[in-house]
C-alpha cells in the first residue's frame, strides 16, 4: 500500500509542476502590456513602474519564474491589487464557504443519485426505470446557470420558502447546493444503475439468491457494496467539475466563496488574484484526484497490486 501511495505521489509531481508553470505563464498571455490593462492607460508612469516592479514584471522571464517558485514555497502569491491583502489570505478566507457548498452538493447528489440508481436497476425496463433514465439524461443536460435562476424564481420568489442569497443557516444552502449538485445526481444515478446491472449478473448474486436470501439482503448487502466501487472514482473525478461549477453557482446565489472571488477578480482585471485562484483551485483538484486514487486502492486490492 505504501508503495502504491509513493508511486502515485511521484506521478503527481510533474502534474503539479505543470500546473504551477501554466499558472505563472497566464499573466504573460495578456495581449499588450498587462500593467496598462490593470491600471488603465491613463495611469501615471510612476504608478505603472511601481506596480511593474511590485509584480516583478520588469525582470527577465527566467528570473520571474525563479522568484515565483521561491515565493510559492512560502505560500506567497503576491497581493490583491484592490484590497492589498495577500492573495493566499483572500483565498483561504473564502475557502470554507466554497467547501461547504461543494460538500453539500456532493451530499445531495449521493442522496438522490444512489437510491434512484439502485431502484431503477432493481426494476429494470419498468416504467419507473424508463422515467428515471430519461430524467437522468435531462438532469445531465440542464445547465446550473439556468437551473439556479429557475429555483430562485419558484422557491424564493413565488413560494417564498427559501432565502435567495448569501451564506447563513442550512436554509441558505439548499438552493445553491441543489443547483450545483443536480447534474452530479444524474451522473451518479446512471452510474449506479449501470454498475448494479453489471453486478446483478455475477455468480455470487445468483448464489445469494439461490440460498433463499431476501431481495433486500441480496441487493443492499451483496450487490450494492460491489456496485459502489466505481462511484468513488466518479465522485472524485466530478469534484473538479463541481469546484469550477461553483464559479457560476456562487455568482447566481451571491455566495461568498472562491467562485465569486475569482469572478470579481476577472472583472476587475486583478491578475495576481486571478492567478492565485487558478493555482489553488487546480491544486485542490489535483489533490482530490490523488485522494480518490488512494481511496479506490484502499477499497480495491486489485488496483494497488497491479
Amino acid at each position: 500500500m505504501i508503495d502504491f501511495i509513493v508511486r502515485r505521489l511521484l506521478l503527481t509531481l510533474p502534474v503539479v509542476f505543470g500546473v504551477v508553470t501554466l499558472t505563472f505563464l497566464l499573466i504573460h498571455l495578456v495581449p499588450g502590456d498587462p500593467i496598462d490593462i490593470m491600471l488603465g492607460e491613463q495611469a501615471s508612469v510612476q504608478d505603472k513602474d511601481s506596480l511593474r516592479a511590485d509584480l516583478g514584471l520588469d525582470r527577465p522571464l527566467g528570473e520571474q519564474y525563479a522568484v515565483y517558485l521561491k515565493n510559492l514555497t512560502r505560500l506567497d502569491l503576491g497581493r490583491s491589487l484592490l484590497s492589498k491583502r495577500p492573495v493566499t489570505e483572500e483565498f483561504f478566507n473564502r475557502f470554507p464557504a466554497t467547501a461547504e457548498l461543494t460538500f453539500a452538493a456532493i451530499l445531495i447528489s449521493l442522496v438522490i443519485g444512489i437510491p434512484l440508481g439502485v431502484f431503477a436497476a432493481i426494476r429494470q425496463y419498468s416504467w419507473a426505470d424508463n422515467l428515471i433514465s430519461v430524467g437522468g439524461l435531462l438532469g445531465m443536460s440542464m445547465p446550473g446557470f439556468w437551473l439556479g435562476p429557475m429555483l430562485i424564481l419558484i422557491f424564493a420568489v413565488h413560494l417564498n420558502w427559501l432565502p435567495v442569497s448569501e451564506r447563513g443557516g442550512i436554509e441558505h444552502l439548499i438552493l445553491p447546493a441543489f443547483s450545483l449538485g443536480l447534474a452530479l445526481s444524474a451522473i451518479l444515478m446512471r452510474m449506479t444503475r449501470a454498475s448494479m446491472l453489471e453486478v446483478k449478473k455475477e455468480d455470487y448474486i445468483r448464489t445469494a439468491q439461490s440460498k433463499g436470501l431476501s431481495p433486500r439482503v441480496v441487493y443492499f448487502k451483496h450487490a450494492l457494496r460491489n456496485a459502489l466501487m466505481p462511484i468513488i472514482t466518479i465522485v472524485g473525478l466530478q469534484f473538479g467539475a463541481l469546484l469550477t461549477g461553483t464559479i457560476i453557482t456562487e455568482t447566481i446565489f451571491d455566495w461568498p466563496g472562491i467562485g465569486t472571488l475569482f469572478y470579481s477578480a476577472i472583472q476587475q482585471r486583478n491578475y495576481p488574484l486571478v492567478q492565485g485562484c487558478v493555482l489553488f483551485i487546480s491544486l485542490t483538484y489535483v489533490f482530490v484526484n490523488l485522494l480518490t486514487d488512494i481511496a479506490y486502492a484502499v477499497a480495491n486490492p486489485k488496483v494497488r497490486l497491479s
Partner: peptide, 24 residues
C-alpha cells in the same frame, strides 16, 4: 501521455475561463 496527463489534471472549464479572462 505525460503532457496530456498534465493538461488533463487542469479543470478544463477553469482554464478556459482564465484564458478568456486574460486574452479578452
Amino acid at each position: 501521455m505525460r503532457f496530456i496527463d498534465m493538461l488533463y489534471a487542469f479543470p478544463g472549464f477553469l482554464l478556459a475561463i482564465a484564458l478568456v479572462a486574460v486574452l479578452g
